[in-house]
Simulated assay, not measured.
Amino acid sequence: MSSVLQAREEYDDALSSGREVFLLEESDQSPDIFSLSVGSLRPGESASIRLEYVTELAVQADEGLRFCLPAVLNPHYQPRGSEDVCIQVTSVPASLVPYSLSFSARVSSPRPVSKVESNCPLDALQYLNTEQTQATVKMAAGHKFDRDVELLIYYKDAHQPTAVVEVGQASAKPGSLMGDPVVMLSLYPEFPQAVMSSVASCAEFVFLLDRSGSMAGSRIKNARVFIMC
């Protein structure tokens, strides 16, 4: 029996016995669509659902970082003859939604947080340390989630190089990806206004450097000089 069928049977058995249970399933047609079933909640009880994911924040033209929490599941491209995986996704006017959205964000960075803006009303930004490198912001109460929630995060000295070091996990095997310490170096250069005015659009440059044995000697030195120019 496959793990999917076994999970569904265990969920059905738990429902039949009156136990509180949930089932998270991935769509067969699209790997980024999930459905969560929560069953056997007694009257007056509530359930807390926590989702975690990692994503890169897009850099805006004014140097802000944009985070977006979409209010609806946008229809996916459907090849001819395929099943519409979004057919069960519905929406209703905000005035008919019997709930509101409570949203808070914690911002942490090597650089001080300058400000946080949003297309939705926010409470005042609260700093968590004197360096202002950590802060929290909350959405004003009563938001009906009738539009996407967008946050624009701005930092002081955004163009200064930063390095973040992550120590290896003690439980991981030495020499593995999670067992070794890792350093992330961020370079966000600031070009003169005369140069930027002549550029039609912003661009992002990603350098992938080979550090294998074939790069020993002058090759790795020349590559470093080229990147730092």
Rank of each mutant, 00 (worst) to 15 (best):
M1C: 15
S2W: 09
S3R: 06
S3L: 15
S3Q: 14
V4I: 10
L5N: 15
L5C: 13
A7S: 03
E9H: 12
E10Q: 15
Y11T: 04
D12W: 13
D13M: 13
D13C: 11
A14M: 09
L15A: 00
S17V: 14
S17G: 03
E20Q: 15
E20R: 15
E20L: 13
V21K: 14
F22P: 04
F22D: 11
L24G: 14
E26M: 06
E26A: 14
S27G: 13
Q29Y: 13
Q29M: 07
Q29V: 11
Q29R: 11
S30V: 13
S30I: 04
D32I: 11
I33D: 11
F34I: 14
F34D: 11
S35D: 10
V38F: 00
G39M: 04
P43R: 15
P43D: 02
P43M: 04
P43T: 05
G44V: 09
G44D: 04
S46I: 10
I49E: 08
L51E: 01
L51Y: 07
Y53C: 15
V54W: 11
A58D: 05
A58N: 11
V59H: 01
Q60I: 01
A61N: 11
E63Q: 07
F67W: 14
P70M: 13
A71K: 05
P79T: 08
E83V: 09
D84N: 14
V89H: 02
V89I: 10
V92Y: 00
S95R: 12
L96M: 08
L96V: 07
Y99C: 13
S104E: 15
A105T: 03
S108P: 05
R111F: 00
P112F: 02
S114C: 12
K115T: 06
V116I: 07
S118C: 08
N119M: 10
N119T: 01
N119E: 10
L122W: 00
L122T: 01
D123P: 06
Q126T: 05
Q126I: 01
L128G: 03
N129T: 14
N129C: 04
N129P: 00
E131K: 03
E131F: 02
Q132S: 02
A135Y: 01
T136Q: 12
V137I: 10
A140V: 12
A140Q: 13
A140I: 07
K144A: 12
K144W: 03
R147L: 06
R147T: 13
D148M: 01
E150V: 10
L152F: 08
Y154P: 02
D157A: 13
A158H: 08
H159V: 06
T162P: 12
V164E: 13
V164C: 00
V164K: 08
V164N: 00
V164T: 11
E166H: 15
E166S: 12
G168W: 02
Q169A: 15
A170I: 07
A172E: 08
P174I: 12
G175A: 09
S176Y: 04
S176A: 02
L177F: 14
G179L: 07
G179P: 04
D180L: 11
D180V: 06
Y188M: 07
P189S: 06
E190I: 04
E190D: 06
E190S: 02
P192Q: 12
M196F: 08
S197Q: 07
S198V: 03
V199Y: 05
A200K: 09
C202A: 11
A203W: 06
E204A: 08
L208I: 03
G213N: 11
G213T: 05
S214K: 05
A216R: 14
G217F: 01
I220A: 07
A223G: 09
